[in-house]
C-alpha cells in the first residue's frame, strides 16, 4: 500500500491533538502520557456499578477487521460500549471484499451509514494510514494492527501495565523476547518506550527473527536469552506467530522453547520484582512455561483489563480531536458573523 504522507502528521490536528490513532511513532511524551492518564480514569469508571460513561453517546463505531482477532476486537467492542457508542462488527474477510468490492468502496458505503469511527485491522502495513487519508473529515480511524508495521493500542496498554505495576516507565530496563521480525507490537512498544524515557530496551530472539534495524530504533539486540534477561525490570514475551512463518526460520517449536522459552530458571536472572507480560494469546510450552504464565510475577491478565481502558482513552481522544477540528473549521467559516454570541461563565 502506498504511503502518501507522514502518519505522525495525519493523526494530529493543527493544534497537536489526536484525531486518528495510527502509530506511537513520533507522538510526544505529553500526548502518550495524556493517553495513559485518561486510561487510568477509565479503569476507575469500570470498577463502578454502572461501567458506562455517556461520552460517545449517539456515535457509531465500526470494527473493520480484515484479519482474525478475538481479544483485540472484543476489547475494542467493550471499550466502545463502555463509552456508550453503538458498535457494528464487520467480519470483512467473509463479506463484501470477498465479493470483489475495493477497500475504499466498502469504507464509503459504511460512511454513508453515518459512521463516526473505524477501528481497522489489516494484513497490509500502512492500511489504517491509507484509510485515514481517504476518509471524510470528522471520521476517526484507530489502527488495531497493520501488517508488521504497528499495533499502537497494544503498545499503549503495555505502557499502562508497566506504569501501574512499576510506578513509572522512566529508568526501567525492558526486554522484549521472541519473534520481533513479524511483530507490529514490538515496533510500537519500542517507539513508546523510548519516548516515555525507558532506560534500556532489549530485543531478544534468534538472529532469523530479530531484524538488524531494531538497533536504529534504539534497542539493543541479544541472541542469548540468559544475557538479555539479566537484571531487567520488565519481560515482555511475544507470541510465536506460527501463521506468519511460511519460511523456515526456526528449527522446531521444541528447540525454540529450549532457547527462548521463558522458564522460572530464566526469569530468575531478571530483577526479583520483575514483571512478565504477554500480548496473548499465549502458546504454553512454546514461548512461555505455564508456571511463569500463571506465576506471581505474571501480569498477563491485568493487561487484558487495561486494554479496554486504553482503547476507551484513544477512542475518546480521537473523537474529541475530530470534533474540535470540525468546530474550528465551522468557526473559521463564520468568523465574519458579528451576531455570534459568547457563552459566559466559568462553569456551564
Amino acid at each position: 500500500m502506498t504511503r502518501h504522507s507522514d502518519p505522525t502528521q495525519v493523526q494530529l490536528t493543527a493544534d497537536g491533538r489526536l484525531k486518528h490513532f495510527l502509530t506511537t511513532e513520533g507522538l510526544s511524551k505529553e500526548l502518550l502520557t495524556e493517553i495513559l492518564d485518561l486510561a487510568d480514569s477509565f479503569i476507575s469508571t469500570q470498577e463502578r456499578a454502572v461501567k458506562k460513561v455517556p461520552l460517545l453517546r449517539g456515535k457509531t463505531v465500526v470494527n473493520l477487521f480484515f484479519e482474525n482477532s478475538t481479544r483485540t476486537r472484543s476489547t475494542f467492542e467493550l471499550a466502545a460500549k463502555r463509552l456508550s457508542a453503538d458498535i457494528l462488527n464487520l467480519d470483512i474477510a467473509r463479506s463484501a471484499t470477498s465479493k470483489g468490492e475495493t477497500l475504499m468502496d466498502t469504507l464509503w458505503n459504511l460512511e454513508a451509514m453515518y459512521s463516526d469511527m473505524f477501528v481497522v485491522r489489516h494484513a497490509d502495513s500502512g492500511a489504517a494510514h491509507f484509510i485515514a487519508e481517504q476518509v471524510t473529515p470528522g471520521v476517526a480511524i484507530i489502527n488495531a494492527g497493520d501488517g508488521r508495521h504497528a499495533h499502537p493500542t497494544q503498545a499503549m496498554l503495555d505502557m499502562l501495565t508497566i506504569r501501574r505495576h512499576k510506578g513509572k516507565i522512566e529508568g526501567q530496563t525492558i526486554a522484549i523476547v521472541g519473534d520481533i521480525l513479524h511483530s507490529r507490537v514490538a515496533r510500537s512498544q519500542i517507539h513508546a518506550l523510548k519516548t516515555l524515557g525507558a532506560k534500556e530496551v532489549r530485543v531478544i530472539g534468534p538472529a532469523t527473527l530479530v531484524p538488524k534495524e531494531m538497533k536504529d530504533l534504539g534497542a539493543s539486540i541479544y541472541c542469548n536469552m540468559e544475557k538479555g534477561l539479566t537484571d531487567v525490570d520488565v519481560v515482555i514475551m511475544l507470541r510465536l506467530q506460527k501463521e506468519r512463518m511460511s519460511d523456515a526460520l526456526l528449527p522446531s517449536e521444541g528447540e525454540y522453547f529450549k532457547l527462548y522459552g521463558l522458564t522460572e530458571a530464566k526469569l530468575a536472572l531478571a530483577k526479583a520484582d520483575a514483571i512478565v507480560m504477554h500480548p496473548g494469546p499465549i502458546n504454553r510450552g512454546v514461548e512461555i512455561d505455564s508456571a511463569v504464565a500463571d506465576g506471581k510475577q505474571s501480569v498477563i491478565l491485568n493487561q487484558v483489563s487495561y486494554g479496554i481502558a486504553v482503547r476507551m482513552a484513544v477512542m475518546a481522544m480521537a473523537m474529541s480531536g475530530q470534533v474540535a477540528e470540525q468546530q474550528a473549521l465551522s468557526n473559521k467559516n463564520s468568523e465574519h458573523d458579528d451576531t455570534k454570541t459568547t457563552i459566559s461563565g466559568a462553569t456551564v
Binding site: D37, L38, D40, S41, F42, S44, L55, M317, V323
Partner: peptide, 14 residues
Amino acid sequence: DFDERGLSAHAKGS
C-alpha cells in the same frame, strides 16, 4: 457539549 468542545484535556476521573 462534547460535540462542540470535545473532551477536556484535564479530565482526571472521579
